[in-house]
Design a protein around this nucleic acid. Structure first.
Lengths: 330, 330
DNA sequence: ATGAAAGCGCTAACAA
DNA sequence: TTGTTAGCGCTTTCAT
């Protein structure tokens, strides 16, 4: 592996000059620039990022901190992680994966290693001890998700208000007024997406004069199935933020002789791919996962490079119409 | 951030000694070791991994190279990536994500940066140009998946022979002899898992005196649905290595008035979670994704540290019985 | 516009 | 057993 010295020698300049042309740090005569560039090309030189990091005190590595545990991600995570990786690469950064516990201990340990310039924090809790750790370490960070009070924190998240509004708009346009919401029981008492979705639903129902019907059930098919009698009794449409229960509801309906969307309109929070597995294909709201991953990384890097101050971005779930919703029956 | 020098001063020893106790590189008196350790604790010292990497010529960073493109991963990828990350961490390594094109160009570029000690290559093709790139760069690597001729390459992969055998054993024990296999049409002509699964199926059918019935259809529900007439006509059981088509087959059967498993036994290659979405819950073979991720990383690190020579590991899909298979009808 | 030289924080000969 | 010191390959003042 050739080094800057090899390049410098070959080009007949000093290593400083080589560095200047490589980084565009200082003006250099076109002639010498040319010489350096040929030397680089001829030797197949590629700068050692590690040495650069050490000397410049900027590693150009960022971490994606995600919970270690068995807490299952939303199904959009793969796109999520790889899109974060792509975003980092396209800005010339590397993305390392940091599986860390939620109390911040492991995070503190890793930050001490000085390997990364900043951290993207996933699966942010309403009160998240990892944020204190990042603050005291003085490490720049961006959140995917947000705390109870995210003011002043660089973050990107789903716009739950808009998302619920989109679902309600769609159903109300079809004449529905008895619209239930089903969320997933979760081990985390203060899981942001759920808390915010329920709050948005209640607020919007109040604004629109609808009677809220809130259900919270285990993320399993049987739990969804158990809901069916009450749903068909009380609602004409249901919004399901609970992937597994959704399929339980569907089979429950089928077994009881009900037909979707004739007897119940269904909107589900899940990927269109997954919604397509149902019969009929479901009208879905799907997570803008890849966008969130990309935006989270970009917000962090903008911050690191002191570019734009990066407004917090809130993206709604993306609506995709299937055939599981229909005009309410007279 | 304190440095080795601060620690050395505080402990009244040289930086070399500090390094020795930190790395266990050389014998040190219990007394001085003690002094160094207290100094470390008191100062909250944590070694700068970057500097260590540069000086020791070992970065303790490994890359997970995965295809950039829109090629959709098997659904087990999230576990996969995070388990790789965990495995790396538990050995004291960092894992960086490298989204790279399949022709190896970007990989070569990244290797030149000298950031990583080795690479875990995902989604390996039967003929994979990235392997040549890694070889000429002299970078150690491990494959997840394998080339057409994987002899001599460190790799872990699914044992397709065993997997198909498990499926056939199960169905034959239930009396089935007309067992179809459905794979997914793919843009990659030589997609290893598919090629190997089909080959295993044909070989095992021959050995067992069964008549092979091979289908290859698009990975969509409608494509699966279109298969139904022929399947019920010719087979009593089907093995589906095509997630989306599986659900098409199921709805197709339901719409035509057939009942699973009475009229057709179904074994699907998918996660149990996904299989549970179907009605009845499917008997599945699911990818040992997390194990593959972990083993791939471990095989690479073993190689880097010159530990065990690491035998190639072949793991079968994991069988999980649902209620979609039954004894063949008389 | 270019060069000399002092580090970045650590490891690892080599000496003592 | 411990210390001295020369790097690792690069960036970045500070001179010129």
């Amino acid at each position: 592996m050739p080094t800057v010295r090899d390049v410098a020698e070959r080009a007949g300049v000093s290593v400083a000059t080589v560095s200047f042309v490589l980084n565009g740090t200082k003006p250099v005569t076109p002639a010498t620039r040319q010489r350096v560039e040929s030397a680089v090309a001829e030797l197949g030189y590629r700068r050692n990022e590690l040495a650069r990091a050490l000397a410049s005190r900027r590693t150009r590595i960022v971490a994606l901190a995600h919970p270690t545990g068995e807490h299952r991600f939303g199904s959009s995570t793969p796109d999520f992680v790889t899109s974060a990786g792509r975003a980092a690469r396209s800005r010339g950064y590397h993305l390392v994966l940091w599986p860390v516990d939620t109390d911040g201990g492991e995070l503190r340990e890793l930050l001490g290693q000085g390997l990364v310039d900043g951290v993207v924090l996933m699966e942010v809790r309403m009160e998240d001890p990892r944020i204190g750790v990042l603050r005291t370490a003085g490490t720049p960070f961006a959140l995917i998700g947000r705390t109870a009070d995210p003011a002043g924190l660089v973050h990107v998240d789903i716009d739950f208000d808009r998302s619920v509004a989109i679902a309600l708009d769609h159903l109300q346009k079809l004449g529905h007024r008895d619209i239930a919401l089903v969320t997933a029981r979760s081990p985390l008492p203060d899981y942001g997406p759920k808390v915010r979705t329920r709050a948005a639903y209640e607020r919007l129902c109040a604004e629109r004069g609808l009677t809220p019907q809130l259900y919270d059930c285990d993320p399993t098919a049987p739990a969804g199935r158990a809901l069916v009698p009450e749903l068909v009794e009380r609602a004409t449409a249901v919004v399901l933020m609970n992937e597994y229960a959704t399929f339980g509801v569907l089979t429950g309906l089928a077994h009881a002789g009900y037909v979707v969307p004739r007897d119940l309109s269904v909107v589900a929070f899940m990927s269109p791919d997954m919604g397509a597995l149902a019969d009929p294909p479901l009208t879905v709201l799907h997570s803008p996962g890849p966008d969130l991953g990309r935006l989270g990384v970009e917000a962090l890097i903008d911050q690191l490079e002191g570019t734009a101050p990066t407004e917090p971005a809130l993206l709604p779930y993306v609506f995709e119409e299937g055939r599981s919703t229909a005009r309410v029956r007279a």
